[in-house]
Amino acid sequence: MSIFLAILDRELRLALRQGTDSLMVVAFFVVTVVLFPFGVGPEAAILERIAAGVLWVTALLASMLSLDRLFQQDYEDGSLDLLTRAPASLSLVVSAKVVAHWLTSALPLIAAAPLLAVLMQMRGDGFGILLAAMALGTPTLSLVGGVGAALVLGARRGGVLVSLLILPLYVPVLIFGVSAVDAAVMGLAYDAQLKILAAILLVALVICPPATALALRQALE
């Protein structure tokens, strides 16, 4: 556990000192969402209808953009070699890095989401559920993204490749995330969607760290 905390501490320190990275992700999120009214027109009815989908898709892309930060730098400067020799299972190390990634890239997105929901004319009933769904869904995105980021280490054009690998795997989170918010806005029951999001998160928690560890090991062979 102390190793988990030590790595988490290191990652957070690195992220805070490099600072701008997290801000860039949020800036991407905000700017992309703001582009949509220009694309589909300013009618409130249309914006309200597509608000949940636009926010989710954009959050997905934003969290994907920040994935190269997860392992790439450590891979290049060799610290990844040292981390695999840490006296703890590599899955635990990976989990710490993924948690740090979530804290520094997904949490700011969740914080920015209500503001963008206002801009997208989302009705007030959806706000709380949007936050809850994102809080349950984005950790899955980070976990699955970790597998993709580890797989493309050392690949040609890894940044483009990772999107092709993991976006299809993001589909379930997107579907249930959007449908929970839509249901809440329409005044329907939404707890089933949230529970499924939580279930997907639990499955991802079990599967993704070992898969990422396996991918890292074969990247360093």
Binding site: V144, V147, L151, V152, G154, A155, R156, R157, G158, L161, L165, P168, L169, V171, P172, I175, F176, I196, I200, V203, I207, C208, A211, L214, A215, Q218, A219, E221
Partner: peptide
């Protein structure tokens, strides 16, 4: 995507298994 062909095989195999777990979830969703 890799110059080393075994590296490509390994990475693709891991991806394939992760995908195989996901296929039923995607289908259901």
């Amino acid at each position: 995507a890799f110059d080393d062909i075994t590296r490509g095989n390994r990475a693709a195999a891991i991806l394939c298994l992760v995908g195989a777990v996901n296929v039923p979830i995607i289908k259901f969703s």
